[in-house]
C-alpha cells in the first residue's frame, strides 16, 4: 500500500511541478493546489497506513483496544491543510493584484525593477 501511494505521490508532484514550470501564473496556481495535496498525502503516508481504524478511544476504555491509525501525522496534516488554504488565498490575491498592475500573468517575462543593477562598490 505504501509503495503504491508513494508512486501516486511522485506522479502528483510531477504533474504539479509540470504545471508550475509552465511560466504562466495561473497554471502555477493550479500546480500549487496539487502540490499541497501531494505534500499532505506524503506526510500522511510517511506515518504508515492502517486500514479502517480511526484513532478514537471507545467509551469505557482507557486506550485504543485495537491497533489504530497513527494519530500524530493526522494532527500535523490537518493543520497543514488549513494553513495551505490560507497561503493559497494569499497567492491568489497576489495574482489578482499582479494582473491588475501588469495586465498579464506571464511570469517568464522579466518583471520591472526587481533587482537594482550595478551598485557602486567602494
Amino acid at each position: 500500500m505504501e509503495a503504491l501511494l508513494s508512486g501516486l505521490i511522485g506522479l502528483l508532484f510531477a504533474a504539479a511541478l509540470y504545471q508550475m514550470l509552465s511560466g504562466h501564473f495561473l497554471r502555477f496556481l493550479l500546480g500549487l493546489v496539487m502540490i499541497s495535496n501531494a505534500a499532505t498525502l506524503s506526510v500522511f503516508v510517511a506515518g504508515r497506513l492502517t486500514l479502517g481504524q480511526s484513532p478514537l478511544i471507545p467509551k469505557g476504555a482507557d486506550a485504543p483496544l485495537v491497533e489504530v491509525a497513527n494519530a500524530l501525522p493526522q494532527a500535523l496534516v490537518l493543520t497543514a491543510i488549513v494553513i495551505g488554504l490560507g497561503l493559497f488565498a494569499f497567492t491568489l490575491f497576489l495574482a489578482i493584484r499582479a494582473f491588475r498592475r501588469l495586465g498579464h500573468l506571464n511570469a517568464n517575462s522579466a518583471l520591472p525593477g526587481l533587482r537594482p543593477r550595478k551598485e557602486t562598490h567602494s
Partner: peptide, 23 residues
C-alpha cells in the same frame, strides 16, 4: 514541454523513491 516534463518526472521519481525508502 519535454524538458519540463523530464525535470518534473525526475523530481517526482526522487520523491517517490525517498518516500518509499522511508516507509
Amino acid at each position: 514541454r519535454w524538458g519540463h516534463a523530464t525535470l518534473a518526472l525526475a523530481t517526482g521519481f526522487v520523491i517517490s523513491g525517498t518516500l518509499w525508502g522511508i516507509t
